[in-house]
Design a protein around this nucleic acid. Sequence first.
DNA 1: ATGGTGGCGCGGCCA
Length: 260
Amino acid sequence: MMLKVATWNVNSLKIRLPQLLDWLYTQQPDILALQETKITDPCFPKLHISAAGYQVVFSGQKAYNGVATLSRLPASDVATGMPGLEDPQRRVLGATIGGIRVLNIYIPNGQIIGSEKYSYKLSWLDKLYSWITMELSCHRWLFLIGDFNIAPEDRDVSNPISSDERIFCSSPERFAFQQLIKLGLRDTFRIFPQKEQSFSWWDYRSAAFHRNLGMRIDHILASQELADVCISCYIDESQRRLARPSDHAPVVSEFDFRLY
DNA sequence: ATGGTGGCGCGGCCA
């Protein structure tokens, strides 16, 4: 039995719904984490999602942020925030699906190093570390997936020159990512050999996708016991080539694991 | 390039 898990920042679910439904039909993931749904809960297109054969939980807001998790099996123990962080921004969605804890996150962008938004990102990452520590203590099967807005290494950036002082690449951001790895999570993409210059996000501007100027900032982290049975991880760049694409491509990981 | 594109929603904000 194979378990297929994916993450995709769709940059507006309303605009991307036709693409999402096409993608679900062809890819048939068991679990899909969406970010930047940009839609309020009453407006969420759950009929379309269920018609495609998926259960869904979501936590949205108007115009910004918003996360949703689709799955073949129903979700329980849903969490829409992190302990110790009163945050009106909808960036977190935890759920237990078929015995696996699935934590879908949309880490703040940070905008400019030293800005207020950057401070918010770092304190958010601090809360995330505590939360993941706690979640790992009670779930042996756990995924931490989503848009991290962090490029973990220089090889995850098309132009790593002076990357140390660039947003997504700064030492505090990369340190926070490594702290999650130290907790026992594995970056499933790096379990396997990958082509150089592999990215999951490309700026809409300056024909960045065409020139492959991007970053790998969307990640599927798995607890050790799931990483042990991970059989592949890839970025589906085909979605970025379509008309009116999201600026992010879906990331997919497959596991030799049976959901129950 | 102190720029550039896209989404939301109709003036900026956010990415």
